[in-house]
Design a protein around this nucleic acid. Structure first.
Length: 464
RNA sequence: GGUGAGGUGGCAGAGCGGUUGAUGCGUGGGCCUGCAAAGCCUAUCUAAGGGGGUUCGACUCCCUCUCUCACCUCCA
């Protein structure tokens, strides 16, 4: 499989026969997660699912930033400890992402639980004279890392000429960034340099190296982290280990709204919880995977709505396959199905092209639905197709709503009752049964000689 | 100002130096149905931001102009 690497600007080959170590920059837990976070995490979730399907042993580490000015500010405002804020939004995070059917990472390390690791990291940089102490804290000296700017393709002097670098007398160089900030307020820890808290970037360097080693396969996150966060991580980590850091830097595009980036400062955030009120995780995942991960996606209810229609085809296809009966030849359809699957896989092999993979998946759906329409679907065919279908939806992370045997029994009884009423041309009564079944969340599908059904997902479009 | 990513049908959005604009949505018509819904079939929409160049041939490569977005401050 190939992945585009931001650092080298080339596609890099991933060896899927062994272990693949991935570090994803997670969220700062000071508020609810939004749909932009969802996209990034879903992309890495699909990557993980796909790599695992190819037999790779994937390890994903995703941090929670639980030391941050925004957390501290919120804690002050609510008059609680910082940890109360972060644990609230960590719980919130798990609820949101479980509902989005995201497989949990191998580990979710927290910054506050790795203070010692960070301090050891900083000590080493201070010993190497790459970091220095000032009156405000310990800073990384960018001048000591000549390759600074290689990830974001920025030149140091151009950064300096930009008027927006923060003015801080205590820093030797305006580009230097904090490894440790002196502070006595909650939360803070003792350190060899004085009481304080870690800077933002150091946690990811310390924790990724701790859990994944000095040179792991993929380091990722949203595009907006390229500078300064990932740039600084490279500077720290490579200064610390004296060797290249991550092999591949993978960055996910932003979700925009009316063409503008979704961000707190613009006040155009759509929280995951908010979107989940109107659209299921299946719809949200299809939406988030509808374009190439590296490009922006514009959020709109219409686009989400469009995916409801797509999803129904998938659902209906699945239920039809499960209700198929009889035996028959499979050679021809087998060829087509395998072709779709190959197309699906090679799309994902090529830099996780989920949109192209989905189009192969929809070709598959259409092939099956054609057989359904022509009443030529058989159990022989569905026995062949269902495992492939299930494999594909697993990789995309879609879930067909489950239904109990008891429910199935009730549904079948009602269908039979309706059939006899229809035979007697008692259509009003038959329609009443259809409504009754509909209230159970089941949609009936009348074919020429038989009636099938599918479980409708709870999707109410709350259009305001 | 610097850096990066882009501008493809009504919408979303891939691929490819050369047969028919992938795939989905939408729209028109049809099949099916007691009616719906779902599904299927079929049709529809003169595509490639503008201008140059390379080439036998460019949407695909190069140059230039232009527009959009992102990053350069915290940000997934």
């Amino acid at each position: 499989m190939k992945i585009q690497d931001t650092l080298s600007k080339n596609q890099k080959q991933l060896d899927t026969s062994g272990k693949i170590r991935i570090y994803v920059c997670g969220v700062t837990v000071y508020d609810e997660s939004h749909i932009g976070h969802a996209r990034t995490i879903i992309v890495f979730d699909v990557l993980r699912r796909y790599l695992e399907s190819k037999g790779a042993w994937v390890e994903i580490i995703q941090n929670f930033t639980d030391v941050d000015d925004r957390i501290i500010n919120r804690a002050k405002r609510e008059n609680v400890r910082a940890s109360a804020i972060s644990s609230r939004y960590i719980d919130n995070y798990y609820n949101d992402f479980d509902d989005l059917n995201v497989i949990r990472a191998t580990k979710y390390p927290k910054a506050t639980e790795h203070i010692e690791d960070m301090q050891n990291f900083i000590k080493s940089l201070v010993n190497k004279k790459i970091a220095y102490t000032s009156k405000n804290g310990v800073y990384f000296s960018v001048a000591k890392f000549p390759e600074y700017g290689k990830l974001s393709k920025k030149k140091i002097d151009e950064l300096l000429s930009g008027a927006r670098v923060e003015v801080d007398e205590a820093k030797k160089d305006p580009l230097d960034f904090a490894l440790w900030k002196f502070s006595n307020e909650d939360p803070s820890w003792e350190s060899p340099w004085g009481r304080g808290r870690p800077g933002w970037h150091i946690e990811c360097s310390a924790m990724s190296i701790k859990y994944l080693g000095e040179n792991f396969e993929i380091h990722g996150g949203g595009r907006d982290l390229i500078f300064p966060h990932h740039e600084n991580e490279i500077a720290q980590s490579e200064s610390y280990t004296s060797q290249p850091f991550a092999k591949i830097w993978m960055h996910v595009g932003m979700i925009t709204i009316n063409g503008e980036k979704m961000s707190k400062s613009k006040g155009n955030i759509k929280s995951i919880r908010h979107v989940l009120e109107s659209f299921s995780s299946n719809i949200i995942r299809l939406f988030c995977l509808s374009g190439h991960y590296s490009k922006p996606i514009d959020y709109s209810e219409d686009l989400l709505q469009e995916n409801i229609t797509k999803w129904r085809q998938v659902e209906s296809c699945y239920y039809e396959m499960n209700l198929a009966k009889g035996n028959g030849p499979t050679d021809e359809i087998k060829k087509i199905i395998i072709e779709c699957q190959n197309e699906f896989n090679s799309a994902l092999d090529d830099d996780l092209n989920t949109h192209l993979a989905l189009s192969a998946f929809f070709k598959f759906i259409n092939e099956i639905n054609q057989l359904v329409a022509s009443e030529t679907i058989t159990k022989s065919i569905s026995d062949l197709a269902i495992p492939i279908f299930e494999k594909m939806i697993y990789i995309i992370g879609l879930k067909i709503p489950k239904i109990s045997d008891e429910e199935i029994k009730t549904i079948n009884e009602l269908i039979n009752k309706r059939e006899s009423l229809r035979a007697e041309k008692k259509f009003q009564e038959a329609d009443r049964i259809r409504d009754q079944i509909s209230e159970m969340g089941i949609e009936l599908i009348d074919h020429k000689n038989r009636t099938t059904w599918m479980k409708k997902e709870k999707i109410q479009s709350e259009r305001h």
